[in-house]
């Protein structure tokens, strides 16, 4: 099945697999920072940067657009922080404001650029829902290398991430700077978003960042295994979604990744060993049996007495 695909498609599959794994790992960090929605807000906030970079350069340059997306997402993040610190508006509201303003601005710019000469054929639309098949060999190599770097950053600092996420005050007492860890976390998050938007799109990037860690949580009570599972779910969804999208001409990648990712979530929700419905139901049944045992014994005694 895989062997029958063109070499370029095989590379694209490989890169979305690595991207999904990186997103699954960073999503886990976001999950325990209670900032899952932040990843969604920042991926939407990346759109105007992508469009502006294209408009300025006049052609589709991946490094240029990654830089644009990074600046734009970072601006979005700073605005979210600024709204919170200078008003009584809560974080989720601030994220909602920035998400819609930046995305609206991005769509507006996109429609303007698409009307200008050359813009229509630019393939910029693929940045909204993702078009993995449109990636060139060079895009694929850049994306894979950056995603591998993200995976390495999480793996090398595993112990530090765990400490920082569980108890950041205690971590600071031990000399692990919260500012440094936050800075690295934001850098990794923005990096994953900007390398993912071409393949998955700005709207659905959050499917790779939010759904895999939530699914992994149902299976395990260990942070390490949660990271590994989340990476596997993310990678699996990335690769499988991309493969399905290559079956039809011009099919977008993002929606299929979401479908695969959500299916994995549903399976986890029902069958997850630790927190799945089935595991919980069994737990309750075992308790009921235990609680009912003395009653049954009493009943038997009474019967024999009669």
């Amino acid at each position: 099945m895989i062997a029958g695909l063109s070499p370029n498609t095989q590379w694209v599959l490989f890169s979305t697999l690595i991207l999904g794994m990186a997103a699954g790992l960073i999503g886990c960090l976001a999950y325990w920072k209670r900032q899952s929605l932040m990843s969604d807000a920042l991926s939407h906030a990346a759109l105007p940067g992508v469009v502006i970079a294209f408009a300025l350069l006049g052609f589709k340059s991946i490094p240029g657009m990654i830089a644009g997306a990074a600046v734009s997402a970072l601006l979005g993040f700073l605005f979210i922080q600024w709204i919170q610190s200078s008003s009584k508006i809560k974080e989720d509201t601030a994220m909602g404001i920035i998400l819609s303003i930046f995305f609206g601005l991005g769509m507006m710019l996109l429609s303007i650029v698409n009307r200008t000469a050359g813009g229509g054929q630019s393939g910029l639309d693929s940045f909204i829902f993702g078009q993995a098949a449109s990636m060139t060999g060079k895009d694929v190599r850049t994306m894979s290398a950056l995603a591998l770097a993200v995976i390495a950053a999480v793996a090398i600092g595993f112990k530090e991430w765990k400490l920082f996420l569980f108890d950041s005050d205690f971590a600071r007492g031990l000399g692990l700077s919260g500012k440094l860890m936050n800075g690295i976390y934001m850098t990794l998050l923005i990096l994953v978003i900007v390398i993912g938007i071409q393949a998955v799109g700005v709207i659905l990037m959050s499917a790779l960042l939010i759904i895999p860690p939530v699914s992994a949580r149902y299976w395990t009570q260990s942070f390490k295994r949660m990271l590994i599972l989340s990476a596997l779910f993310g990678g699996g969804a990335g690769a499988a979604g991309t493969w399905i999208s290559t079956l039809g001409k011009g099919w977008p990648t993002g929606p299929f990744i979401v479908v695969v990712s959500s299916s994995l979530f549903l399976i986890s929700l029902v069958f997850g060993f630790q927190k799945g419905w089935l595991a919980k139901w069994r737990h309750v049944q075992a308790h009921k049996r235990q609680a009912a045992e003395p009653l049954r014994q009493n009943a038997r005694k009474e019967e024999s007495a009669v």
Binding site: W32, F166, D167, D169, R217, T220, Q221
Partner: peptide, 12 residues
Amino acid sequence: PQRGSVDWDFPT
């Protein structure tokens, strides 16, 4: 720190 300052649901 105060016990309530961390999330005890953390998987560890």
